[in-house]
Design a protein around this nucleic acid. Sequence first.
DNA 1: CCTACCGATCGGTAGG
DNA 2: CCTACCGATCGGTAGG
Lengths: 199, 199
Amino acid sequence: MTGDTRRGYAKGRAKRVEILDQAMAMFGEVGYRGASLRVIATRCGISHPGLLHHFPTKQSLLLAVLEHRDEVDGEWLGLGGPRGVGRLRRLVDLAALNAERRGIVELFSVLAAEATSTGHPAHTYFVERYRTSVLTTAVSYREARDEGALRSGIAPDEAAQQLIALMDGLQIQWLLSGCVTDMAGVLRAHVQAQLTVEL
Amino acid sequence: MTGDTRRGYAKGRAKRVEILDQAMAMFGEVGYRGASLRVIATRCGISHPGLLHHFPTKQSLLLAVLEHRDEVDGEWLGLGGPRGVGRLRRLVDLAALNAERRGIVELFSVLAAEATSTGHPAHTYFVERYRTSVLTTAVSYREARDEGALRSGIAPDEAAQQLIALMDGLQIQWLLSGCVTDMAGVLRAHVQAQLTVEL
DNA sequence: CCTACCGATCGGTAGG
DNA sequence: CCTACCGATCGGTAGG
């Protein structure tokens, strides 16, 4: 069997990813505080000290989950490096994509609220995340204005803050509605009303 | 001492309110799951079985806190029974008022996210809360349209959903920003842009 | 309202 | 990766 030589490492990497997936689901379902290492481990078919072999503390597991999501989604969001109106469209597309991924929406909605508490292990992460989200979105609005695509009277900084807030609020409503709300539709209508061109 | 005859009952009622206040603060800081009856009780100067004398289960305490908030704020929101544009203005005023009450903002932001989980004791409460919030706000937008105060092209139902989502999203950003974000200002600008009259 | 206790569960460690 | 264990803490109850 040729696979045997690298089997140990491959298995370890695969188990690591499996843990990250199950941890993401649990953190999304019951938050960081509500999640149990034993339950996550059982879902991966190992004991909880087995899990702690891959991630030495619960906090390190949480941060690894968030990093893992940023790698995957950050790459998708920046693909092709769209700017201005193109990037605003990409944000709407992300909302449409997320409507197929309840677990990810849960993860960020629940953890963002939980992490407003100063002592929360992901507090700094979310403070920084929102700061950069609003800032880069403001840049996109300014680029849209320079393209002549932004309706007059729309302030880029305020519009950026509104758009990010709208995305978050819609996710809560979407989760509470049993995934019925049309997140991307409402978002697209909002952005479209700010533009002079077709989104 | 004339007060002595009703002292026992008055003391009981006062302690009940004290528990509700401390519980609200704790649920807001660390969520329902993260809150501990022992800590809440200690902050009220009693033991945790003493707390359970007033509220027989943790769940009943949570629901009592939410009911207590609805009584107070629902009364304020409906004061004078404003309709149409007047009620939209009242919603903006509520956001301005909440900017002085971090505990209340925390409570609803954290619990709404936590309660997206189906099994959460406040799940039904929040599902219903959002449904009625969006519906009554849609009524206000329709009334504004009938007053001739709504800009053409604004759909009442969609606008209602957007406004509620915006309020929630702004609260998260406000909490994460250390209460620096101008919630009411952004909200007022959003609504103003939808109207043909001064808000 | 109290003390004292119940069984369950938590994150993490020891030792292999 | 495992079993076995640590001290701490949980919601709730017994009995007064």
